[in-house]
Design a protein around this nucleic acid. Structure first.
Lengths: 205, 205, 205, 205
DNA sequence: AATGAATGAGGTTTCATTCAT
DNA sequence: TATGAATGAAACCTCATTCAT
């Protein structure tokens, strides 16, 4: 991960891990974890199949490595969004939505991870601890701050954050299914979502 | 599917398909499609491995068969919810949420399907045409009716239905991850979600 | 085989055997014995797979049945050729060649049989006793008669018959390989063969 | 094939292919292609079943590899026979016959190939292009030379070569059928064949 | 006598992982 | 440390044959 610290050999090893991860991620994203062979990965990473096992315990371990990477990256991005803390809340939600849409579009790896969550407890554990929990915590903190500022109503942040994550997962879901509405009419869909979130569905009296 | 019509042998065949599907579904749900072997399925269905292939073209075809079944079942349930058309809208959304939660709890098969969506175009096609599209259509029709009655605001139903589906997928997602909040505090989470949907997040002026 | 004798049920059985054989032969000819499934045969014969086993011990037995049939038929034809015993010898050889070419063209079953000879001793035995030996005997007798008449030279008929059979097998061989020369220039090829047989290759002094 | 050139690993790979081919050929020859299992081959070649697939795409590819090998070998031998170009023609035909008889006796693989020709177009193509066509070309060239020298009559070589090939195929055929005459009285049979070829059957006037 | 569903042995092939070089 | 050939377990699937109806 961090390839600036440690001895030279440690740095080298870290770079190799990166090289493998960078090669494996798009493969997993395209073909799924199970349909990607170690040979595919070795070829794409330009190393031998045997070498994979010098840097990762096994194929699953590569996926876990990817999760770590993606998690770090995404949590970082989330932190940046959060830093816009003076902006009005609706602008912020809009930012959040667009951020997630971009992720779904550019980082299909996340889908491959989600797809493995179902049947793989290790992946589940790792995903929760490195990815979901940190992000939900950031979200909840942020929402609490907004509540404290009186910008949004006083709902328990732990529920609100889960609602937001659900909307995010929904974006991934529709992207994966190549849903024309969510993809081609993204701007309107996104705006509607933010509006509903802020104004509610209830008809004005 | 329909095992009351057709000749005796057709009925028998239909029952065998059911028997196999009933056996395969929980396996796929627990272990995922790829980690479930045809041997597992045959054992669970109490037939020989060879017999599987008298009723299904191949392993994937069993999954497609399951999708058909689950889809029919769920679309049916959705129709029932919809029939409560005189109830106030918020009650209805509440019903919808609870319905979905029950599904997520009792029908983990859906997750296994979703997990295969990522890497399997056939599954994707079948899921969209038999499951997602019909349900979204029902939802959209229903929402339009509510809009016409002046019960909810005039947002495009095609976007609203996708927001609701996202919330549903979110439920599956958190169920799968064994998220303590969504599972153990389901009542409160559900109520909050419906409230947010109806009233919006925006602080009262 | 003989469906005019025996009790009614025996006649029926004999007809069923014929029906199956008639259906199986072209399949074996096209796809080969191993790539033809009993299901294929049952379908083509318009009987159930199970019924095949009421008339034949197993799949191999169907092939053996076909051999019997084809053998009978071909030996019969050979007898007819032989009956033209007053004709000049070269005309007769020409007839023989054309007869064999027609067989090769219309009865590709023989190739399927030959192809199984290699690996199947039962087929080999049956083919020899019902097909090859009778035909070689007829040939040899005939050749002996010609020799006695002073029409052809006094070579041992047992060798001559084998030379003729070799030429026949060659025809099958080139037909199977879709050899343009033997197929499209059949007339010339055939004439040349007969000429060589009669006149010899040796340059005139 | 050529295991003296290329890098060390290429040489190694080439030797392994040879090892597998050497093991598979007699099996195919004895039991036929279809009744020989990959397990049989692996056992005989003293490698694991999996390893077969490091050197051959699939089982058929092993057969194709064998064809290549046998073809090369036989074409080479044919070239040697041809080089005896000063010998009298009848001696040469005699050599040709004996050469083919030896092949039939020692290289039963050819029969297994022929047996697959019937039902397998790939085998057919490969056999024609690598085996039959080159040999027939050599034969035809040689015969033309003899004609030019005035040693044999002026028949079209393309027909003569096919007659000779037919006689060859006949030898394989009778060897396979364990024909007592051709096998035990080979010398006489062979001499008779050459005599008939040269002198013709026609009774001297 | 006819059926065709059920069987299960066995076939080919794939692939994650190991290990000698 | 890097390699990639070798492995072998195990997966999916086919199909000749049987047998209850």
């Amino acid at each position: 991960m961090d390839n600036r610290s440690g001895s030279r050999s440690e740095r080298r090893a870290s770079m190799m891990r990166q090289q493998i991860i960078q090669a494996a991620a798009p493969l997993f994203a395209q073909k799924g974890f199970h349909k990607t062979t170690t040979k595919d990965i070795a070829l794409a990473a330009d190393v031998s199949e045997g070498s994979l096992y010098n840097y990762f315990k096994n194929k699953e371990d590569i996926l876990l490595g990817i999760i770590e990477d993606v998690a770090q990256e995404e949590v970082e991005k989330m932190r940046l969004v959060e830093s816009l803390s003076e902006a009005p809340s609706d602008y912020l939600f809009s930012r959040f939505m667009h951020q997630q849409e971009k992720v779904a579009r550019l980082n299909p790896m996340i889908l491959a991870i989600i797809s493995e969550l179902v049947s793989n407890p290790n992946v589940r554990r790792r995903y929760k601890s490195l990815f979901l929990s940190p992000i939900m915590e950031l979200l909840a903190d942020h929402l609490q701050a907004r509540i404290d500022l009186g910008q949004i109503q006083n709902y328990p942040p732990k529920y609100l954050s889960r609602i937001l994550i659900s909307l995010t997962v929904g974006i991934y879901f529709f992207q994966m299914l190549e849903d024309d509405i969510v993809i081609k009419e993204w701007e309107e869909f996104s705006r509607t979502t933010v509006d509903v979130l802020f104004e509610g569905l209830k008809a004005e009296p």
